[in-house]
Design a protein around this nucleic acid. Structure first.
Length: 860
RNA sequence: GCGGGCGUAGUCCAACGGUAGAGACAGAGGACUUAAAAUCCUUCCAGUGUGGGUUCGAAUCCCACCGCCCGCACCA
């Protein structure tokens, strides 16, 4: 009996699939289309277990859909621009492109080992000039369509690396690479006008019923819509300074206007800036706010601090005067950067008012109780208005409307909807990104490059020996004729945020070599992506940007309006975790890789090199720093790709974290051998492939039932992304086939059916093994081209069922009855049951509940 | 602070409001073997985080609390 040798079988079948072009999207209108996509990887150089899990899941979906008769598009590419390539270039004195393409080659080879059913013909990298040329063309279209704007923005500036940093790259106020204290700088940047479609992006979330609620909620919160009143307070005459007669604030609680205790403005508010020279100590206070502004710890401590400007504002209804503070908790980039403070009904305002001895007047009370007062906790619950003149007794919502209308009538304000979402700044002072295709001309201003001159290619002759953007010091590249007047002008040296690259790649896959960004004759058929799979970490930015991009592409004619939601269904998979091994060494935690340690007993490990014990630690996401990673290539070499795929899909539900364990992999490997062994052992007895079904005895019929129940259940589980349960069904079918004792009529036929079904059902998960079994079973077809098994529904329904009988909810007996027995006959059988007669002890049941096929409950 | 998720056997996990166990891992015993590995057979173990409520019936629904995890976070 030969073992199943993954190392020889796997390459063999991959070559067969390749030769036959099994996984090329046909673009065949006679078949329904199905577009399944996994988030494309960044070419870091090696695939990790997270990739294996992600792509194993996508491949299951792709293979099942293909077997079900869909025309499947399942492509792969590379999210290839970004900072790591530049960092590598600096460290290794090479070109970012050299490093990136070498990584792509390495990772492609690794991915191919997995046996994924990908259409490799469509592969591209976002750093291919062919790709970014189309992105530049779209940039120009977006510019023409008013989807882009250029404006000043405050950015995080690393003075050592001389570049803008994303917020995530600022750690405790310092640059993540240089460690330099990050400065705020005002730069002119390009922005996608995503806020213009904030409302559309928000309201369409309701239509995304194939998305996880969690992600939908996160996107709603990120867009952060709020309705309120934008209003202007008069500044008291004696405190007026030039240019500021009014203070404009934004509030979502106009109903609390009579509870006002003060006004406050952001340290970055223009009024605050203009007061710098007029008020002693103000400039120092503003500087202090700025200094703590970036540190996360400081934000968490969140001590309210304020500075009295000496200005006062007049209440629009009572004429009472209130002080204007500069307060460190007011953000300049939300609303107007100014508020009126109502201490009793906002915790921050209350903290502030208590600290500076400002007025605290409750104006909303539960039930309208006039005696209601507020201590150290602001009241934000429901109630009626008190202490508020003409609003007294009103409900909150009515009072909001009333005040807003009244203020609007005086011309001192208007209702306004605000969003937390900001325009998407895409300018990066980096080399390894898509050049922004515009030219700065002294005479003509900012001019887009002519489309026939695209792509604006990145120059090859650059060096990274100096900090900053090499494009900026590349004079021959920078200097170019103005597309408008032809005079010498300067190229924009900023490149685009890499999130731009990943915001439309899914569309490009439908026609990856087309001369325009999309080919409408095919993109309209393939989009939206039917199933998108990736990590939850992209729940907000990538997915929101892609939704924006699809709308922008529709507006500029690159997509149909039907594709503005590019991802019909989304699945976010959990992480791959592993135990950690460490030891304290000179007061420092030193971590060891799983290969460096050896298990010597229940949960006990020693370091192989010195035989001394190590501490086993938390089970956490695989990471380089904790050294708890397992290399997929090594696993594939040792156990085979099918084993890695199978294990990644078993046990844990796909959206939860899965722990990689040696024991688990070995269990998976055992199962693969077992499937092979029972298939091979059955070969001498089973009839040839395609033999007509003979008569069945009971044992054979029972096996057929197991087989068809497995088809039904596994198919449903896979379609619902319950891969762990689908795996359990296949174990069940395997156990039934392995333990099959039937020898009589139809037994051999039923066994063949079970084994063929097992191969077909396992094919999406362990495709190589399945092909090997299929071939051994005497088929000359390729399983990847064979259709999905069909359920005989009659076989999934049992004639007789076991029903438990409860008396007052406690299980007392069980009976076997026909599955379709009517309630009356079930009741009479129940009452005739000796155990039940004993339980009832002569009492008459009040009620008998019969749930057909399920349970009987006798209530006394 | 706000929002969301999860607590079931030693472990990972199943269970349309209806017999708590599908499946796997680990453990124990046995068969085969000179022995081991592999394989096969058998088998142990929980009443569902805690406390209430709804119901004929709750792991499941509701409320409160505890624990763990993940987002967002001074958004007026």
């Amino acid at each position: 009996m030969a073992r199943y040798e993954a190392n020889t079988a796997e390459p063999k079948w991959r070559a067969v699939w390749d030769d036959r072009g099994c996984f090329k999207a046909e673009n065949n209108p006679a078949k329904p289309k199905y577009y399944v996509l996994e988030m494309f990887p960044y070419p870091s150089g090696r695939i990790h277990m997270g990739h294996v899990r992600n792509y194993a899941m996508g491949d299951v979906v792709a293979r099942v859909k293909r077997a079900q008769g869909y025309d499947v598009l399942h492509p792969m590419g590379w999210d290839a621009f970004g900072m790591p390539a530049e960092n590598a270039a600096m460290e290794r004195k090479t070109h970012p492109g050299t490093w990136t393409y070498a990584n792509i080659d390495a990772m492609r080879a690794q991915l191919k080992l997995m046996g994924l059913s990908l259409d490799w013909d469509r592969e591209f990298a976002t750093c291919d000039p062919e790709y970014y040329a189309q992105q530049q063309a779209m940039f120009i279209d977006f510019l023409d369509a008013g989807l882009l704007t250029r404006k000043n923005a405050t950015v995080n500036w690393d003075p050592v690396d001389m570049t803008v940093l994303a917020n995530e790259q600022v750690i405790d106020g310092k640059g993540w690479r240089s460690g330099a204290v990050v400065e705020k700088r005002d730069l002119t940047q390009w922005f996608f006008r995503i806020t213009d479609v904030a409302e559309q992006l928000l309201s369409a979330i309701d239509t995304l019923d194939g998305w996880p609620d969690k992600v939908r909620t996160m996107q709603r919160n990120w867009i952060g819509k709020s309705r309120g009143l934008q209003m202007r307070f008069d500044i008291a005459e004696n405190t007026i300074i030039p240019d500021y007669k009014e203070l404009e604030v934004y509030t979502t609680r106009p109903d609390t206007l009579f509870g006002m205790g003060f006004a406050a403005i952001s340290p970055d508010h223009p009024l605050a800036i203009s007061l710098d020279d007029r008020v002693d100590g103000l400039a120092a206070f503003r500087a202090e706010c700025k200094a703590i502004g970036t540190s996360e710890e400081a934000l968490e401590k969140a001590e309210k601090k304020g500075f009295d400007t000496g200005l006062q504002v007049r209440h629009p209804f009572t004429d009472e005067l209130f002080p204007v503070y500069i307060a460190n908790f007011i953000l300049m980039d939300y609303g107007t950067g100014a508020i009126f403070g109502c201490a009793a009904h906002d915790q921050r305002d209350l903290d502030f008012a208590r600290k500076y001895g400002l007025k605290v007047l409750p104006v909303v009370a539960p039930g309208g109780d006039e005696a209601f007062s507020v201590g150290t906790e602001a009241y934000t619950g429901p109630g009626r208005i008190i202490n508020s003149d003409f609003l007294d007794g009103m409900e909150i919502e009515a009072a909001k409307e009333f005040v807003a209308d009244k203020i609007a009538a005086t011309g001192k304000g208007e209702k306004k909807t605000n969003y937390r979402l900001r325009d998407w700044g895409i300018s990066r002072q980096r080399y390894w990104g898509c050049p922004i295709p515009v030219v700065h001309c002294d005479a003509c201003g900012v001019v887009p490059e002519k489309k026939e001159n695209l792509p604006v290619k990145l120059p090859e002759d650059v060096s990274f020996d100096k900090p900053g953007n090499p494009l900026e010091r590349h004079e021959t590249w920078k200097t170019t004729p103005c597309p408008s007047c032809g005079k010498s002008a300067t190229r924009e040296t900023d490149t685009m945020d890499t999130f731009v690259d990943s915001s439309w790649y899914f569309a490009r896959f439908t026609a990856p070599r087309h001369a325009t960004p999309t080919d409408r004759s095919v993109v309209d058929r393939w989009l939206p992506v039917d199933q998108y799979i990736g990590g939850i970490e992209h729940a907000i930015l990538h997915l929101l940007y892609s939704r924006f991009f699809a709308r922008a592409m529709a507006k500029t004619g690159h997509l149909s309006d039907a594709s503005v939601e590019p991802f019909k269904a989304l699945f976010t998979q959990g992480m791959v975790t592993h135990e950690t091994y460490s030891r304290m060494d000179q007061g420092r935690e030193v971590y060891f890789t799983p290969e460096e340690v050896e298990r010597i007993g229940e949960g006990d490990y020693i370091l192989k090199s010195d035989g001394e014990p190590v501490k086993t630690g938390a089970i956490i996401k695989m990471s380089k720093s904790k050294r708890n990673t397992v290399d997929p290539e090594a696993i594939i070499a040792g156990y085979g790709a099918d084993c890695a795929r199978w294990f990644m899909l078993s046990d844990s539900p796909p959206d939860r974290d899965v722990e990689w364990t040696e024991a688990g992999v070995e269990g998976a490997a055992r199962h693969i051998q077992r499937v092979w062994r029972i298939t091979e052992e059955a070969l001498p007895r089973i009839p040839p492939a395609g033999t007509a079904m003979p008569a069945m005895d009971d044992a054979a019929a029972a096996l057929r039932k197991v087989t068809h129940k497995a088809i039904k259940a596994a198919t449903a589980d896979i379609e619902a992304f319950r891969f762990n349960k689908a795996v359990a069904r296949l174990y069940e079918l395997t156990n039934a086939a392995a333990g099959f004792k039937g020898k009589g009529d139809g037994a051999d036929w039923a066994l063949r059916e079970a084994l063929e079904t097992l191969a077909k059902l396992m094919a999406p998960m362990t495709p190589h093994l399945a092909e090997e079994c299929w071939q051994a079973l005497g088929h000359d077809t390729i399983l990847a081209e064979v259709s999905w098994p069909v359920v005989e529904h009659a076989l999934t329904i049992d004639d007789l069922v076991t029903m438990p009988i409860q008396v007052n909810g406690k299980r007392r007996a069980e009976i076997r009855v026909a599955a379709d027995a009517d309630k009356a006959s079930v009741e009479s059988i129940t009452l005739a049951e000796p155990e039940i007669i004993k339980c009832l002890d002569g009492a008459t049941p009040k009620k008998i509940i019969v749930v057909p096929g399920r349970i009987i409950n006798v209530v006394v």
